[in-house]
Simulated scan of single mutants.
Amino acid sequence: MSGAFRCIVLIPSYNSGELLHRTVAEVLTVWPEVVVVSDGSQDGSQHALDDLLPHHAGLHLVRLQRNGGKGRAVLYGAQWAAQAGFTHILTMDADGQHPARSLPEFMAESRQNPQAMILGKPVFGPDAPALRVWGRKLSNGLVWLETAGAVKDCLFGFRVYPLPPFLQAMQKSRFMRGFDFDPEIAVRLVWIGVAAVNKPAPVQYLEKSDGGISHFQYGRDNARLTFMHIRLFLTWLWRMFCGKRKPFLSTKHDQNCG
């Protein structure tokens, strides 16, 4: 990748309530370029940034009329960012889980490794629900196999992507538009030769009393993840044993949690 490094923080948002304003305000204290994609929100959060937009030239809002899923929202934001001249996007959630204070070090890592994707590796605190911590182990194990150990955590959405390969992978697939986005895009990018740098980052789980929200639907989204893993595993087998295998890139370097 040639040219100057330009990265924008991309935040997909669907009915994020008051957390959206808080998250964006925290990001703006450490990084001036932000694009928020309001994914068909109907709870008033599509207007949550009205007081910030006039005072921050680098803050942008893209409104989608209907809710299409996280992956679709990120794709719209990535296309917007590419047209605006950015070379990279840093994705993070609107729900306060991802640490705005870690943005500068992730940006610095991406600047040093512009061809790679920088993947957040969550450091769980005592507030992390045990069901979520243990529930992701199966997904991580399958993705570890499918990427020869390159991806350490497939569900943590705090990441930096180089835009050209990201858009290439997304536009070639009709999948990765919902909750299956985070794990599948990491696998697909490794398969097309994008190196992975795994970097630890803290994760915070907010209680409902603090505004915490979750749009994960156990039946629908677990079915989607199961279908995704079946597709990826069958593709991995085909690549491994049918003469179509391309060399996997392991992590460029894995930064341990301490």
Rank of each mutant, 00 (worst) to 15 (best):
A57M: 03
L167A: 15
G211T: 13
P122R: 02
V9R: 05
R22Q: 14
G17V: 00
K172M: 04
R188I: 02
L103A: 04
F86P: 02
D43R: 06
L155E: 11
I192K: 11
V160P: 02
L131I: 14
L249R: 15
E105R: 13
V151W: 13
I213V: 07
C7L: 13
L53I: 15
D153I: 12
Q97M: 13
Y76N: 00
P122S: 14
L61R: 15
E207F: 07
I192N: 11
R111Y: 11
R22Y: 00
G44Y: 08
D127F: 06
Q97D: 12
S209R: 12
Q255F: 14
R159G: 01
F216S: 09
M92Y: 13
R174C: 01
T147K: 06
S110K: 06
H98A: 08
L119H: 13
W31K: 02
G193L: 14
R101C: 09
K152H: 15
M228P: 10
T23V: 12
T23I: 02
I192F: 01
K208R: 15
Q65I: 08
S110V: 09
L19C: 02
G243S: 13
H215G: 04
Y218G: 10
K246M: 05
K252A: 14
K199F: 07
P200T: 00
E146F: 00
N198D: 12
I185P: 03
A148Y: 07
L206E: 12
S2E: 13
E105K: 08
E26D: 08
R132S: 11
L142Y: 03
M107D: 08
V151G: 06
R220C: 00
V187T: 04
H88I: 04
R239E: 01
H229R: 04
E33F: 11
G17A: 03
V34W: 13
I89Q: 11
V30G: 05
A186K: 12
D210Y: 11
L10Y: 01
F216Y: 12
R220M: 06
G58H: 09
G68L: 15
A94H: 00
H215L: 05
G149K: 02
V36W: 07
A195Q: 07
N15L: 10
H60I: 09
T235H: 00
V197Y: 02
M1N: 15
